[in-house]
Amino acid sequence: MDIWEKLNTIDRRWIYLLMFLSILFPTIFVMKFPIELTPEAEQLYNAVEELPDSSVVMLTFDYYASALAETEPMSIAALRHMWRKDMKIITLSNIPLGGPTIAERVTREIAKEFDKVYGVDFVNLGYKANYVAVMHGLASSIESIFPTDYTGTPLSELPLMEHVKSYDDMKFIYCVADNATVDYWISIVNAQYDIPVGSGVTAVMAPKMYSFLEAGQLTGLLGGMKGAAEYEKMVGALGTATIGMDAQSMAHLLIIFLVIVGNVGFFMNRRKAKDAKE
């Protein structure tokens, strides 16, 4: 068996090892290539920036713990951006496992940086099953869907919720998601209740979101860790997404390298087979 045949039948564990090394290398030797901004990320940043100070916004944590590396930096950067403008933030999650817990941890952590008080500057509504019903229900009354917040405190006892009763009292929905709930925020909440929706999604989901973006149904988009790194850059608070960019760069380059090697092997084998036939 010559080298080209071996290339075609290579044990996939060698590829796994190469991938492991390509991710490990940049975490030890930092390279820091400049992060360029995409128009869709700038659009999302500008949409939040243009809102009046102290506006009420909703930030969703529609993601499982599995996608934390891509989505949590988006939530953190968004919180920093919003609180720099002294906005009032309502968080919720349509994901039972992870979302509400992550929202609780992340918001309280970032709140300390800005001296924000729970109940006055932010409220975590937690999770309620059946996201379609939740999204429709919030349009008429938040309290009917969430009588209490995540910790069990009645909404009537939270000062922020005295003025926030439905979508009508909010200026923007910033949806960070790793699943299809974002489609419903767009097709139900944006389309039927006319409130602007911006979103940060995993890299795999981003191509689909471009159709909503082009149609004007989505106000700005962050795609995967790169999108999160862009937002971190615009907010001016570099975080884990920016650090992760080197590893992601190396991983992409490795895949391109593997594709090239695989194709060279494919063509050499094809030529050999053709020669043997002749």
Binding site: F33, G223, S249
Partner: peptide, 11 residues
């Protein structure tokens, strides 16, 4: 697209 999505590739 893979090159474009990462800073090193974009450079």
């Amino acid at each position: 697209v893979m090159l474009w999505r990462v800073p090193m590739g974009e450079a």
